[in-house]
């Protein structure tokens, strides 16, 4: 089992640390669905379950930094998604004047061909956030499904799926990003698909590892004995116990995806002009580092604040899901 349940990126190592560790300090099943409790007569389990979930929520709420970050993050995401449509100018509109410094009317100035730069930044934020959210959604879905199937069915299915996972891990993702980005063009949706195609593997391994250890538990045996279908067992009994890892991973992916988009844009392979993204803006703004520093700093700050708050929320969630916290906070 040790061969595949290991982290592949630094972002996921805390979860996998659990996997690698012998059972005594390992993850306990957490957040079991309440419905399950009625299937069993084990009264203790249901009490523990409920308190477990409450404990997680309470731990997260107590995590001040994470709560503040969550607030900032929600604000930024909502702002990014609707900000562009509230602003006076459209990002594509060419004004009669061009190449103007900031004024009250145009707080970031006007670019070389006459577009309002504030509108461009808002548009960029929207695109970056859209890409990041879609990547998180897609990679989490794919990773969870593949991990769960591999872990549940084991044997040949597991081998095939894990070799495919290995394949994706061995192919250097950036090379494929670069290649595919050229081929499919610079739309935000295509870009998200490409990035997501290389972000699901760590989660697949984590979920597989958890499912592997959970599928032997008595309550799963019991559900199986009661005639529950495989799909039902996976969805109702196994995945809810892996939910901690899944959520934490999904949060982190948002941050990594924002940065991945930025890198691709820096190499000229992200979202293509005339559309824009924070990554594209900040790489264009790099040339203006000294002459129009606001073009360099503001998109950069937005990227950092989004990624940072996502990371803090992820950290808070990780702490909340981590049973060791009981010990620590005594």
């Amino acid at each position: 089992m040790t061969d595949t349940d290991r982290p592949d990126t630094p972002e996921t190592e805390d979860e996998t640390l659990e996997d690698r560790r012998p059972v005594d300090t390992g993850v306990q099943p957490s957040g079991q669905p309440a419905a399950l409790a009625s299937d069993h007569t084990d009264h203790e389990l249901s009490v523990q379950t409920r308190s477990q979930r409450q404990l997680i929520v309470r731990r997260f709420l107590q995590h001040r930094l994470a709560m503040v970050s969550l607030f900032v993050l929600v604000l930024l995401i909502v702002g990014s998604l609707v900000g562009g449509s509230l602003w006076t100018y459209d990002y594509a509109e060419q004004l009669p004047t061009f190449n103007e410094p900031p004024t009250w009317e145009h707080p970031m100035g006007i670019d070389d061909i006459g577009r309002d730069l504030m509108a461009k930044v808002l548009r960029g934020a929207q695109r970056s956030v859209q890409v990041a959210l879609l990547v998180a959604f897609l990679s989490t879905t794919v990773g969870t499904i593949i991990g769960a199937i591999a872990g549940y069915y084991r044997g040949i299915v597991d081998s095939i799926l894990m070799r495919i996972t290995d394949l994706f891990l061995v192919i250097p993702s950036l090379a494929v990003f670069l290649l595919l980005a050229r081929i499919v063009g610079g739309g935000w949706f295509q870009l998200a698909l490409i990035i997501a195609a290389f972000f699901w593997m760590p989660l697949a391994r984590i979920v597989r590892a958890e499912v592997l250890s959970l599928r032997e538990k008595e309550y799963v045996e019991a559900a199986r004995a009661l005639g529950a279908s495989d799909a039902r067992i996976i969805v109702r009994h196994l995945l809810p116990n892996a939910i901690g890892s899944i959520i934490v991973n999904a949060t982190i992916v948002v941050a990594v995806a924002i940065l991945a988009e930025t890198s691709l844009s820096y190499l000229g392979l992200g979202i293509a002009a005339p559309d824009t993204s924070l990554g594209l803006l900040v790489s264009e703004g790099q040339a203006a580092f000294k002459t129009r520093p606001h073009l360099f700093y503001w998109p950069g700050f937005l990227i950092i604040i989004i990624a940072l708050s996502v990371n803090f929320v992820g950290d808070g969630l990780r702490d909340a899901f981590d049973p060791r916290q009981k010990r620590v906070r005594q």
Binding site: A255, L259, T262, S263, Y266, G279, V282, S283, Q286, F296, G300, I303, I304, I306, A307, L308, V310, N311, F312, D315
Partner: peptide
Amino acid sequence: FLFLSMPVFW
């Protein structure tokens, strides 16, 4: 976390 959240070219 701050550095982790920075684009490297920035």
